[in-house]
Design a protein around this nucleic acid. Sequence first.
RNA 1: GCCCGGGUGGCGAAAUUCGGCAAACGCGAUGGAUUCAAAAUCCAUUGUCCGAAAGGACUUGCGGGUUCGAGUCCCGCCCCGGGCACCA
Length: 992
Amino acid sequence: MEALYQTELHPRDSQSTSERLRFDTCISRRCSVVDPYTLREMTDTRTPRADDAPPYRYTARLADEIEQRWQDRWEQERTFWTPNPTGPLSEGFERVDDRTKLYVLDMFPYPSGAGLHVGHPLGYIGTDVYARFMRMTGRNVLHAMGYDAFGLPAEQYAVETGQHPRVTTDQNIATMRRQLRRLGLGHDPRRGVSTTDVRYYRWTQWIFLQMFNAWYDDEQDRARPIDELVGELDAGTRAAPRGRPWSELDAWERRTVVDTFRLAYLDEVAVNWCPALGTVLSNEEVTAEGRSDRGNHPVYKRPLKQWMLRITTYAQRLLGDLDLLDWPESIKIMQRNWIGRSEGADIVFPVEGHEDLGIRVFTTRPDTVFGATYMVLAPELDLVDEIVANEWPRDTPLEWRGTFGIDVSPVEAVEAYRNFAAEKTDLERQAEGREKTGIFIGAYAIDPVNDERIPIFIADYVLAGYGSGAIMAVPGQDQRDWDFAEEFDLPIIRTVQPSADFDGQAYLGEGPAINSGFLDGLKVDDAKRKIVEWLEETGKGVGAVTYKLRDWLFSRQRYWGEPFPIVYDETGLPVALPESMLPVELPEMTDFQPRIVPDDEETLPEPPLARADDWVTVEADLGEGTKTYLRETNTMPQWAGSCWYYLRYLDPTNENRVVEPDVERYWMQGDTRSGGVDLYVGGAEHAVLHLLYARFWHKVLYDLGHVSTPEPFARLFNQGTITAYEYLDERGVYVPAHEVEERDGRFFFEGKEVIRQQGRMGKSRKNAVAPDDIYAEYGADTLRLYEMFMGPLDASRPWNTADIIGVHRFLQRFWRNTVDEETGATRVSDALADEETRRVLHRTIDAVRTDMAKLQFNTAIARLFELNNRLTAVVGDTGAAPLEVVSAMTLMLAPLAPHLAEEVWARLGRAESLAYESFPEADPDYLVVEEVEIPVQVDGKVRARVKVPAGASEAEHEAAARGDERIAAILDAVDVLKVIVVPGRLVNFVTR
RNA sequence: GCCCGGGUGGCGAAAUUCGGCAAACGCGAUGGAUUCAAAAUCCAUUGUCCGAAAGGACUUGCGGGUUCGAGUCCCGCCCCGGGCACCA
């Protein structure tokens, strides 16, 4: 971690895009160029207006001075160092021993070279406000910020600039640290780990070893160490799978058997190979159009031996434990959909002429089995080769044989269809719509319920990866099967009575079973239950649950990632390195570019590490004497490091354990149902990738006893995105937003009209606003306050620089109410506030506390505005601000605008930082209202307002309402049929 | 196609817990005070329409409904944003 601080970048070493952008902006505003890192020059020369201002007015100049001074002081005084209960970070714990812990976490950033724009820190500001607030309400708050720094962009950037990714990554981290510090975020700097730090990824590798050395025990429904499995096999308490007894297997065979149990395992899979990125991608990283999530490059299916993580064994727990979590319902729904649980039955269909063979199908509609008129297998299934006929049955219709020639045999037709299907990208399948293709393979199956002989097809609308890769086709109740049946002229039998006119399409609705033998007349649910009972009794099938979730493809053919702690022996089987050989450091390479041949679809990826010859070969004694091994040359995907960083924040320097159990328990256990991080804030784009992977890793660590809670993140909050106007010229090309002029509601760039629309903020859209520009104009406190004020934290909202002046004026006004702008003397008096002001104060405290606790900072700020307006009036009347109001308001402002609050606090004579002061508490005596004004309605329309004492009876309400002149006059002319009184809310006279 | 989320003044938004004064707060705009003048500051007005005013009518994407009363609940649409998509 220290290395991160040591890396100082000379300002001219590289000029990132955002710096150039700022440069441009400055030119356009005719201010001088400044040092982009210190901002010193900028603060001295800019904003001519400020020069005329009184010396102690709260301008950008003063804000900048205050902010830098307090940031230095926080750093020097270690204000935000948060003590652990034990261990090296425990110094000072006795001071917070009586506090309850609170763990606030941001989704840590990827330190790109582009620098921040004002849209990035929205969530960080939100968590900082919340963390500071909760600290002031008596919690021991942990808040830190690390860096997710492995991954493709760093490597690609390094390739482009010819620098080593470690150099560029460290530079980017240093830059980002500076940028975040300038916002005044109160992080514990000791805990800001980077995933690329070898002291960090040593433990990422260690966790991988935990998975490699574990298996999932279905009976106990948890992961257990693999040694325990071997023990059971040795002892004979567990039978070896697939045939031969354990005792008859030789050592190599035993290893291959054990390897099939591991949570981390090698498998030859059809991977998503992306030549343009030079790597394979996980299913989650491929879009619906069959392109890479990152970069939108084409992706091809290739068979390749890769590391897989057995996340599917956790499908049910990942699904069920969502109920424990305080997460946005939309994210839970996305995870549920992704896991994709389906209930139904497995049914075995015997194959004609193969007594030993049955085709197992999964169906959610076992009640429709009487309507199965054909079967379909996924083309790539090995089973197809076993049952494909040698020649076509005599009466095979010509169109069933496919379009590959009149003389081809079934085997040749299968081959031809497979090629045809494999050539199609997912994109082409999309383009073709849902038109069904397939061929008959010359074989027949027997429907187990009615012994009907039904033909077996292969078709690409059946997916090899789901269920068993085979279906019973029931065209009467499935639209896809209906379409296929029409295409191939197959019989269609309805087994549920359609409720309305369903000519020409499948019926998926409710209705009594028909044509279904002993099921006839039963409703769908009852028929399902009965047929499953029957299947289980007869041994022809069994109730079953299937998930869409796939195992996690965990290998990448990249340089800039965590090396696997795995070597291969002479037999080609993987061997885990012992913990003592960790870390496996990334070798230094100069040629870390992936081999990319985008035009050649036959290329296979070559990991760069395969070229690090010295590194790849290892001499080691791994239990069989010193031998030569070859290292795994793939690296882990970027998700690996982000799966567990929240645990390392807790104990970042621990060299003996991933995290010390006492420390882990202190921070992760709490009063939430699931335990884990108390508040996790980040973008909704991680709904299924990061958040599912991290939950999976956490559960593995939980099963193996390394963490004490079943879930990592008790409460999740998605911050919105900041959008901005973007401008397109007539070619549809983005033009720089800050150079567009507005004239009469139309927009012009270089004299030509452009169109304006709302979009994500980003440098490619040329609408990014650099935080430095806002600091230069207003200061960091104003930026913080503006981002919190512009709308609810979880909503997306448009950036509007013109609106910032409002929150800046508020800070300026509060400052002026407290500090004389000419002399700098405080203008605070010890005199008590008047009753009404005090009432406003306590109502504000009450509301601000409630709003802050609910992360509703926008309304909390509005209440502070109101209080300040009151204070302004008082100062106007009396010439001084009452201390009780100023000090309470300073403390309430502290989480939002901490620098200004600290400065005022110090000027009030306080020596200590206010970070640990108690947040003001409302005096209930000042919250009671003696009299309320309520509306009086006649037929639902407000006709008057009357005052009634708080707690008045219904009769008193009505009397007060009738006592109003206008109401009396109106009621004179009509008959009152009914009077509605809602005490304290309204009175309504109903006359019709 | 399916599943979420959203639609409120010129703009950002409040109010949605449990149906009860729609538009808090801020920006912008208008007028005033101050100033030689401007900036800054302070005060006032500001949903739309009719009206000199008092006052009245209308108003939360559209159309229905429930209710004394609907931005909020129900039914049917439209539009925007996000996710999934041949998952048997």
